[in-house]
Amino acid sequence: MTQEKGNQTPNTPDFDESELDSMKVDELREKARDLGVDGAADLHKGELVKAVAKAAGRKSRRDGNGGRDKGDGGARGSAESKSVKYAQEITSTDDDPERPGRSLVTTDHDVIREWAEKRDAKPATVPGTEHGDHLGVLRFDFPGYGGQDLRHVEWDEWFGTFDARGLNFIYQEERTDGSQSNFFRLENPDREDA
């Protein structure tokens, strides 16, 4: 399958994916590592192209925006998603919800990992949903919750897939009554069916 000429990754206006696509996989992996893309060693070429374009776009926006970037910890994609539009963006582990029950959104790995670890949740995937040797549906395995069989994965692999798919992590810290919430949802803001 040949890459379309130009830029196919939303919110990365300064990057031509056809140029990235012409690079060798080793070169892409090195560029991904330089840009801080987690799990680059496990990504295939198409995923690497998208992950490098997104990471380079975030770096470019950050460098031109005093170090802050909506896609660097906050929501990715357009703000048209109702879930993202009405959620409070969290960009670091130091940010607190405005009130109990508040919907939150982030792409920050430290925030997501801290949230999961506070709940003893393990990064996981749903067996049988894989695409070749790529992870399938991403989940967290919470202790004491039976039902669906999940396969635990390493954080680097989970975050590599999360970033390659351009997902947002929509979640709650607490319910409106102040008790801990395990609610989360992964959303691809560039897909209407997400």
Rank of each mutant, 00 (worst) to 15 (best):
R99D: 15
D21P: 00
D38M: 10
E98R: 15
R58L: 06
P143T: 12
S22I: 11
D193K: 10
T9I: 01
V52S: 03
R119I: 04
S92Y: 01
G66M: 13
D14Q: 06
Y145A: 12
N65R: 03
Q8L: 08
D21I: 05
R139N: 10
S60Q: 09
R33F: 07
G101R: 10
S81I: 03
F159M: 05
F169W: 05
T176Q: 12
D72R: 05
A121Q: 09
N11R: 00
D177M: 09
Y145D: 13
R62K: 13
E98I: 15
L138W: 02
W158S: 12
F183A: 04
R62C: 06
A41N: 15
A55P: 05
D177T: 03
E30S: 07
A116H: 13
F184H: 09
D26A: 15
A124D: 15
K5F: 14
A75K: 04
R58K: 12
G146Y: 09
D72A: 12
N188Q: 03
T12W: 01
G166T: 00
D163Y: 04
E192Y: 11
G73P: 12
D133L: 06
D38Q: 10
W155F: 10
R76T: 00
R185T: 12
D156F: 08
R139F: 13
Q3D: 12
Q148D: 05
R61A: 07
D110M: 00
I90A: 00
G46V: 14
G73T: 11
H131G: 13
N188I: 01
M1Q: 13
D34S: 12
F140K: 09
Q148R: 07
R76G: 01
E89C: 11
D133Q: 14
R29L: 06
W155V: 05
Q3C: 07
A79N: 04
F142S: 05
G36W: 04
E27R: 05
F159H: 03
K82P: 11
R62V: 00
S81K: 01
F184Y: 08
D96I: 09
K85R: 09
L48Q: 05
W158C: 10
G146C: 11
V105N: 02
G136E: 07
K50N: 08
A164Q: 06
G73K: 07
E174T: 14
P143W: 12
R29E: 10
D163V: 01
G6D: 09
A55R: 01
E157M: 14
S78E: 03
H152W: 15
H152Q: 15
K118P: 11
A194G: 03
R191E: 10
I112T: 04
L35M: 02
F15G: 03
K31M: 09
R61Q: 07
K122F: 15
V84L: 02
K122I: 14
W155Q: 06
R58N: 04
D96H: 13
S181K: 02
E30D: 08
K45T: 12
A75D: 05
T91A: 11
A53Y: 01
Y86V: 13
K54M: 03
A164E: 07
A121I: 06
V84K: 06
